[in-house]
Each structure stands twice: as structure tokens, then as C-alpha cells.
Simulated assay, not measured.
Amino acid sequence: MKALAIAATGMNAQQTNLEVIANNIANINTTGFKRAKAEFSDLLYQTERLEGVPNRANQNIIPEGAHIGLGVKTSAVRNVHLQGTMTNTGNKYDMAISGNGWFQIEGADGQIRYSRAGAFNTNADGQIVTVDGFTVSPAITVPQDMVELIVNKSGQVFARIDGQADLQDIGQLSLATFANEAGLKPLGDNLFEETAASGAAVVGVPGDPGFGTIEQFYLENSNVDPVKEITEMISAQRAYEMNSKVIQAADEMAAVISKNLR
């Protein structure tokens, strides 16, 4: 009985849906996190009767056929790259992007990764790094005798040196944008990787056309909406229950047939 297999694909799909929702809720307080959404598509169809062909030789054309679907499959888990709200932390190394763009982060293997999480700090050499110690690219080194750090909306980084009146220009932050942000590959640790689907990174200066601006002393919050996630979780639970009911009904129907054949 096909209903058993069809309903099983529905239960698998809703299980995947629930796992995506659970991950969203788990990261509700993760800086720069982008919620994900599971996308589904129907499976192949079994044709019982084909439309558009003659019913008999030289007879009328069949106006509509009979196609029975074989279930559902997960087609994608898409990250929704919408702007999250911002929180003022008062930390001079915290930076948020207002608008389009990604910070460029140099990974342990030397490859460039991308992140919206601007919770930065400095390492032992004074370089601005992420909370996991990865260097922000282009590299910016903060002088040890600095008493004030200023990052303007255009990403220019200035330091006020102890005993000096003038600000010292110590670097320029740049941002990267992509033709298809949904095509970026999530790696964990708030990092994403460029793929063939995302297209090549377009690097520019904050504030230029198509690029967001830098907000010092702020962090971008997760864009997860708790109410929306709870609503979708309830919907996934109900859909799972309905598919299980189909399996139960199909099993009972098969039992009736089995008894009658005895």
C-alpha cells in the first residue's frame, strides 16, 4: 500500500522541519545568527491515466489524467539573511553591520570566511580578531599604548595614542557582498563559506553603494522571532501527527484485507 510509504516521507520531512526550528530556537541569542527555513518539494508522480491522448482510436481526447504523488522530500534548508536588531554593548571592539555586507575573516587554513558577528577583540600581537581568535581581514593592529579606538561608519579605524592629540589611522575595514547570500555554506562558529551557488565575493568599502555601514559599540542580534518559531513548531507537530494517522489508517485497511483473504 503506497499510503504507508507516502506518509513515511511526510513524517521524515516534518522531523527535518522540527530539527531546523530547534536549531533556530537554540541560537536565539547567538550574535549575527540567521534563522533557517526548511523548503520541501513533492516527489515523482505515478501516472495511472495520461491526459491529452485519445480515449480510443479516433475518439475524444482525455481532458485530464490521473497522477498519484509519491510523497515529499527536503529540497533545501535556506538561511534567511534579514537584518537583526542591534544592541549597544559599550565595548569599543564590538561592531555591527547596518545593511548589506559581511565581515571577512581569515580562517585557520588561511582561507577567507564571512561573518555578520562583530564581537571582536585583540590577540597578543594587537591584531583585531574574532572570539575564536581568527584574524579580521584586512588585518588591523591596534597599538599597545592606545587609549581610544574609533571606527567610523565607513570602516576607517583610528587610534588615539597616549600623549598624542591627533588620531592615528591604523586601518580600513572592508565588507563583502554576494549575488546569492542563500548560497553561502554555513560552517558553524558564526562563519560562512563562499560557494559556486553564492557567487564570488564582491569586496568594497562600508557606505559605498550596495554596502552597509559599520556601527561601533553595537552587535547585531539573531533574527530569530520566538513567536514565529513556536507557531511553526506547532504546525510541524500537527503535520507529523496527521501523517502518523495516515499510517495507522493504512495499516488498519491492510489488516481488513488480510482478514478477508483468510
Results as ranks from 00 to 15, higher is better:
N221L: 08
V147T: 15
T74W: 05
G110Q: 09
K245Y: 01
A66L: 14
Q104W: 05
T87C: 00
A236P: 03
G32H: 05
A182I: 06
L70P: 07
A5D: 10
L261Y: 01
L50H: 08
G126M: 10
E39G: 07
D125P: 04
K37G: 06
D145S: 11
Y114A: 03
Q164L: 11
E193N: 09
S115V: 08
N12L: 14
K153Q: 13
S154A: 14
Q237H: 08
D109P: 00
T130S: 15
G163Q: 12
V203C: 08
A57H: 04
S258I: 02
M146S: 12
M233Q: 08
Y45Q: 07
G71M: 10
S244L: 06
K2F: 11
N190Y: 04
G10D: 07
P226G: 11
T74C: 09
M86Y: 13
N17Y: 10
Q144R: 10
I97N: 02
N12T: 13
V142M: 15
Q164D: 10
N223M: 06
T31F: 05
I62M: 14
G183W: 03
D42L: 00
I28Q: 07
L191A: 10
A236Y: 02
Q144V: 05
N190A: 13
A239C: 04
N190C: 07
N123R: 08
N123T: 05
G10V: 13
N260M: 14
E252V: 10
N221G: 06
G199T: 03
V205Y: 03
N79T: 12
K245L: 02
F120K: 01
V80T: 11
Q59I: 01
G163S: 11
V131H: 12
T47S: 06
I68T: 12
Q144W: 00
N23L: 02
L50F: 07
D94M: 03
L175K: 12
R35F: 01
T85K: 05
G10M: 04
R160A: 05
I161P: 02
V256H: 02
V142P: 04
G118R: 00
I25G: 03
V20N: 01
Q59Y: 14
E232W: 02
I97Q: 04
L167G: 03
